[in-house]
Structures are given as structure tokens and as C-alpha cells.
Simulated assay, not measured.
Amino acid sequence: MSEYQYYEFQALDQPLSREERDRLRAISTRAVITATSFTNTYNWGDLSGNPRRMLERYFDAHLYVTNWGTHRLMLRLPRQSLTLPMVKPYCLAHHVDAWATRTHLLLDLTSEDEGGDWVEDADDSLAALIGVRDELANGDLRPLYLAWLSALAAWELEDDNEDVYQSCPEPPVPAGLGELTAPQRALADFLRVDADLLTTAAQASPPRPRKSARPTKKELAPLIEALPEKEKDALLLRLALGPEPQLRTELLHRLRGTPAATAVPGRRSAAHLLDSAHTLRNERRQRAEHEQATARAQHLTTLADKAESVWQQIEAHIAAKKTAAYDQAVTLLVELRDAYAHTGRDADFHQRLTGLREDYQRRPALIHRLDRHSLR
């Protein structure tokens, strides 16, 4: 399989100028560049630019996918909507990183799985994931917690030092981990978040507070009146200079405050979460094995009850004197052997099988198949 790398960048808050597009064209002559996007696929070679620097200067979101298992999502948000101290508790190893420029906060979320299955021609696109940027800007920290869970599972594979996990605290637990939005579910899939780890984490997650109603003039008027004159002037100046798509969200946060119940302090260690997820996984596996064993037992009991009909089918397949028919006959014989054993009638089966081998001893193709499946 040839190499595959997919790069996608999106400018959401402000379109690219002609000069900026020209500078991006110098990075790649083959990329599809518009006023709001930069996309390119590489089957050989690599992007000459640095994705982090490109995001800092030009874009608000970046997706990177390879056929050797790398999934990477980077987001840029105005510093007024999300602060570095809020994000830092969710940063872990090289899988979740954050840094700030003078105007923005940037997130780098990565998942690596070299042994994962690669789906050629998959729909690689930012479209399903981009909604988490607005959610983060509105104070929803669930995407950050999902990225931390993804990093935790990857970290476990890289470092088996139990003491490290015992000393690693859980970050604040956002409300509503048990009821993810569509973009958050897409992010969990993209970052390969372990389902059992997420279920374990969600046990300490309070319900999401009900969405507050659209603010009214009566509610906002006194809040705006109470703002300091200097702050009002600064907001009006930014509005006049515009466009700033996040300005309304920022202003509402300033006036009404971020909902207080969006997260609770993390009280568990990484080791506790990992151990609980392993327990949950083992319990589910045991239930599945028990259900399979029960279904198998029921199937064999039913098969033993209609054994004579199955013997007739076997005789009919053998009479066809065809390779495929012999294979079908042997498959039924293997099932019958298990059914007779399940009902404690092994001797009856071997007596019938001996008679069948004697009747068809001049059919070497059939006898060879019987021997190969230990039907003696």
C-alpha cells in the first residue's frame, strides 16, 4: 500500500486575504486553496510547512490523517473564550497539548494506532468534528476530557509503571459525559476513545444543566448598564472593527457568567480509571462468552432432537458426488458430532459414522475430508 497523508485546514472566524493565500501557495503548489480552506493529499513527499505555525497564522482548525494510524486535530480559539489554565489539567504527554499566542489559545489532540485497520477512501473531513470548537468556546469541556481519556489509554500502552498512574490525577470531570453531542461522539471515534474507559469516567459526571433560555432585553439591559465605561468602549470598538464571530458569545459569557455546574473536581487517579475500565471490559467479555455458550448449547440440543433429518441431509449431499456437496456433508457431520456429545450420546454417533464410512469407502474424496476433520 502506498503512503497516504491528508491535510485539511479551515479558516472559520475570518477569511484568508489574497496575500495570505499567496503565501500558502508557496508552501504547496498542489494544495486546493480557497478563501476559507487549504486541503492536500500526499501519496509521496510531505507538507513543507509547519502545521502548528500555519494554524497560528491563518486557520482555526486542522485535520491530519495517515494510513499508518495518525489522527490529529488542532483547534484555534480566541483567548477570551478558553484560557490556558482551564485547559492545562487535560494535557497529557504528547497526545494533548495546548499553548497560547497573544490573541488565541491552540489545542493539539493526537491519536496514534499503527496496528489499526486503515479504510482506504474513507471520508476524511473536518465537517463531523468542527462543532467541538464552538462547544469549547461556549464552556463545554467534554471534548477536552475525551482527548484526555484517549491520551490516557495511549499512555498506558507506552508506560507500564503503575506508580505513575497512581500519582496522575483525573482532571475536572465535565457534566454530561454520558450524553455526548454528535460532534463529541465523532471526536471520541476519531481519537479512538475506549468505550469502557468512557463509561467508567461518565459514572462521576453529573447531568448536563438544562440549556438556558435565549437572553431577553429585560435580563441583559441592567447587566450591560453595570459594565464599566472603559469595557463598554473596548467592546464597541471591537464590534466596529469586526468581524469577530465569537464576540457575541464572549459578551454573553461576560454578562451572564459561564454556567457553574459544567465540571466537578476530578477525584480519581488514572490507575483507578484504567483498572475500572479493565474490570468493566472483562465483565462484558464474560457475559458475551456466557451468552454464546448458552446459545451454542441450545443450538446443539435442537440439532440433536432433529438428528434423523440431518442424517438424511448428509446422505443427500454425499449422493450428489460433488466436491461442494461433500464439504456441506462434513460440516453437518461435525455439528452432529458436537450435538451427540452435548446430549451424552457419543456412542450412537460413532456407530452411525462407522456405518457411513463403510458404505462410502470407495469415495476417496469424501473419506479424505472425514479424516481431515477427525471423523473416524
Results as ranks from 00 to 15, higher is better:
residue 14 Q to W: 10
residue 19 E to F: 03
residue 139 G to D: 01
residue 375 L to V: 01
residue 326 Y to S: 03
residue 67 N to K: 03
residue 90 Y to I: 03
residue 239 L to K: 08
residue 42 Y to R: 02
residue 69 G to N: 08
residue 182 A to D: 14
residue 133 R to A: 15
residue 138 N to L: 15
residue 297 A to K: 10
residue 31 A to C: 09
residue 242 G to D: 03
residue 21 R to L: 13
residue 315 E to I: 12
residue 217 K to Y: 06
residue 59 F to K: 05
residue 195 A to I: 04
residue 56 E to S: 08
residue 297 A to G: 13
residue 11 A to H: 11
residue 225 E to Y: 09
residue 292 Q to E: 13
residue 176 G to D: 14
residue 224 I to D: 03
residue 3 E to N: 09
residue 30 R to F: 06
residue 332 L to H: 09
residue 277 A to C: 11
residue 164 V to T: 10
residue 73 L to W: 05
residue 4 Y to S: 04
residue 350 H to Q: 00
residue 295 A to D: 03
residue 322 K to H: 09
residue 198 L to S: 13
residue 88 K to P: 01
residue 357 R to M: 00
residue 370 L to Y: 04
residue 25 R to P: 09
residue 103 T to K: 12
residue 355 G to S: 06
residue 218 K to Y: 01
residue 310 V to H: 03
residue 211 K to I: 13
residue 49 G to R: 07
residue 275 D to I: 04
residue 10 Q to K: 10
residue 147 A to N: 06
residue 370 L to Q: 09
residue 230 K to W: 00
residue 117 D to F: 04
residue 298 Q to N: 11
residue 148 W to K: 04
residue 313 Q to H: 05
residue 351 Q to P: 00
residue 246 Q to T: 11
residue 305 D to T: 12
residue 353 L to K: 00
residue 4 Y to F: 14
residue 231 E to T: 09
residue 82 L to G: 05
residue 368 H to T: 14
residue 371 D to N: 13
residue 196 D to I: 01
residue 274 L to Q: 04
residue 343 T to S: 10
residue 16 L to K: 06
residue 3 E to F: 09
residue 241 L to T: 13
residue 274 L to Y: 09
residue 360 Y to W: 15
residue 50 N to I: 04
residue 351 Q to R: 07
residue 315 E to N: 12
residue 53 R to T: 15
residue 324 A to Y: 10
residue 243 P to S: 09
residue 174 P to E: 11
residue 189 D to W: 02
residue 121 D to R: 12
residue 245 P to L: 10
residue 177 L to G: 10
residue 350 H to K: 00
residue 117 D to C: 02
residue 306 K to F: 02
residue 171 P to D: 08
residue 72 R to A: 06
residue 83 T to A: 09
residue 192 R to T: 01
residue 234 A to R: 15
residue 17 S to C: 09
residue 230 K to V: 06
residue 19 E to W: 05
residue 53 R to Y: 05
residue 52 R to P: 05
residue 365 A to H: 12
residue 84 L to Q: 05
residue 320 A to H: 12
residue 22 D to G: 14
residue 18 R to N: 08
residue 280 L to Y: 13
residue 243 P to C: 08
residue 226 A to G: 08
residue 113 D to G: 01
residue 154 A to P: 00
residue 193 V to M: 12
residue 5 Q to K: 08
residue 74 M to S: 15
residue 355 G to K: 01
residue 187 L to A: 13
residue 261 A to N: 15
residue 232 K to G: 06
residue 60 D to L: 12
residue 143 P to D: 07
